[in-house]
Amino acid sequence: MSRHAMNKPALNRFLVLAAVLGLAAFSNNPYVINLLVVCGLYALPAIGLSLLMGYTGQISLGQSAFVGVGAYGSVLLAQHLQLDPWYSLALATALSAFTAWSLGWLVFRLKGHHLAMATLAIALILHTVLVEWRSVTGGPDGISAIDPISIAGHALLDDLHFLPLAWLVCYAGLCLADYLVRSPFGLAMRTVSENEAVARSLGIDAAQVKRKVMALSGAYAGLGGALYAHWIGYISPEPFSVAFSIKLLLIVALGGVSGVWNVLFGVFIVVIVSEWLKPLGRLDVVIYGLLLIVVMIYCREGAVAALAGLYRKLPQRLRPGARASLKLQGRTSA
């Protein structure tokens, strides 16, 4: 795969993304705008998980815990220390990263299913704490009347106003992740993912790499959670249950584990497909489950690779550009 060639279109990506979002905003359809905000907010923790799972080969079912730490952390800091949401947002992100880093010391003694379970346990424990530690977290009723984020005195109450912020942060997150996986550290991550023994023989401290990536994924998750809290204005333990960890896992797996930008795909599929299925009434859950199974069986590298494969099978004349197809072939054959 030509990773340096992928770096070039960063500006193009930004323009396309801005155009799509601009179009959506211009359509002035609050429902679509709302879904796009949700997509942006879900993308952040998913990018973190993609770094951890896709590039470093470490599965985690505990990301919802870090999202929860970010959300509750930011809200509690803002309310108790009378901080501006901007500061509490930054502090909560750091707190979440630190939590993830410390837990990394514990859980990275494990691999595979055991790691999955240990991280699952972390998510379950945090959820119970959020429910039971009522004096601080408000218990199952949660915390309402959360201050919105404001820019120059203008509170971002509307989805429309929040949309650019969510996606700017998301875009920055994507660029940072993209930069990281291309850096020498990214190579170390991939080596750890392929074979830890080899990594160690090359002088890479595998455990430290894993902890660093875990901390980073915690930061992404925490930031996503904090933004979510100030956007929706109300938090309760439910959104930070294991179900959300599983959703993030789906996003990353659907997008395909290689390429941080693919996360966006996973997000759109998970958020928008489940909305499409709504008119089917109670069948929606069944079909959603079936889709998951089918995609996982038949699109092993994720939906992006599968779409690319389909695209390549199209007759040449139907494709909007031979250059693009060459690029695609280069990508999928890597």
Binding site: V20, L23, A24, N29
Partner: peptide
């Protein structure tokens, strides 16, 4: 990397159309 842009655009447009 054309694929993701296209599908992204399609998805959003379809979502916009879904409840129109």
């Amino acid at each position: 990397m054309i694929d993701w842009k296209k599908s992204l655009a399609t998805l959003v447009l379809c979502a916009a159309g879904a409840g129109a």
